[in-house]
Simulated assay, not measured.
Amino acid sequence: MRELQISEIDFQDSVLVLGFPEEINKILLQLYLDNRKEIRQILTELEPALPHYHNMEWRLDVQLASRSLRHQIKPTVTMKLNLKQNEELSTKVLQTDPATLLHLIQELEEALAEMKTNHCRRIVRNIK
């Protein structure tokens, strides 16, 4: 396990926003410094064990016609997503049209760009 401790300055910045008097901020900092290993251990135990990406397979299907419409083009993207959680593999099958998939990609790229902002970096640093 990697130690992810925030520095004293980051802790003070986080507590400063709460608007406590300077005296209480110093007490909180000392309590944090005295108990940070125990705090980290408790937070690690509370961390949810979420499944994570292991592998993905995809396929593009195109329906060219049906009984009612002869010149219909209906593309579908099918994805088989393999997830791993506690050394166990699970499989999810997802199906969507290309327009929805492109919209999802755009939203994820925007979220990734947002994570690169200074505000988000500071929040993430303080969470770890």
Score class of each variant (00 low, 15 high):
P75A: 12
L31N: 05
I39E: 05
M56T: 07
A49Y: 14
N118D: 15
N35H: 11
H119L: 13
P21L: 15
M56D: 05
I127T: 03
L101Q: 01
K128F: 08
K92M: 13
N82F: 02
R122A: 06
Q95Y: 09
T44Q: 12
K74N: 06
D13H: 00
L50Q: 14
F20V: 01
V15D: 02
P98H: 14
S66P: 00
I123W: 03
E3L: 13
R67M: 11
V62I: 15
L64Y: 03
E114L: 12
T91W: 07
L108W: 10
E8V: 00
N126R: 07
K84T: 09
E88F: 07
G19K: 14
R122M: 02
N82M: 06
Q106Y: 12
Q12D: 03
L94E: 09
E114K: 10
E57T: 03
D34C: 09
F20R: 04
L16S: 08
E45S: 08
I127H: 07
K26M: 08
C120K: 09
E88D: 14
T117W: 14
E38M: 04
H71D: 09
E87F: 09
V77F: 02
F11N: 01
M79I: 02
F11K: 01
R122H: 05
I127M: 11
N118M: 13
A111N: 14
L50T: 06
T78I: 10
E110H: 11
D13N: 07
K26T: 02
S90N: 07
K80C: 03
N35V: 00
F11S: 01
R70C: 02
A65Q: 08
N118L: 14
G19N: 12
T91R: 09
I27P: 00
E22C: 12
N126V: 00
I123M: 04
S14G: 02
L102Q: 08
E38G: 05
E110P: 00
L4N: 15
R59D: 12
C120Q: 13
N118I: 08
E110G: 03
E47K: 11
L94N: 08
I6E: 01
V17D: 08
C120Y: 04
Q30P: 00
L60N: 11
P75T: 10
V93C: 06
I105R: 15
I24E: 14
R67A: 06
N126C: 08
Y53R: 13
K37T: 04
P98A: 13
Q5S: 08
I123P: 00
I123G: 00
E23M: 13
Q5R: 06
K80E: 15
K26C: 06
E57C: 04
Q106S: 10
N35C: 11
Y53N: 05
R67C: 06
E107F: 09
R125Y: 04
E8T: 02
E87D: 15
N118G: 03
R125S: 02
M56V: 07
R59C: 05
I42V: 03
L69F: 05
L28A: 04
Q41E: 14
I27Q: 14
Q72N: 13
E110F: 02
I42F: 11
I73D: 11
P51H: 10
R122W: 00
L46I: 07
H119C: 05
N126H: 03
I42M: 11
A65R: 09
V62M: 14
K84Q: 15
I6R: 00
A113K: 12
T100W: 05
R70S: 06
L60R: 07
Q12M: 08
T76D: 04
L112F: 15
I127E: 06
L104G: 05
L43V: 04
V77Q: 00
I9H: 05
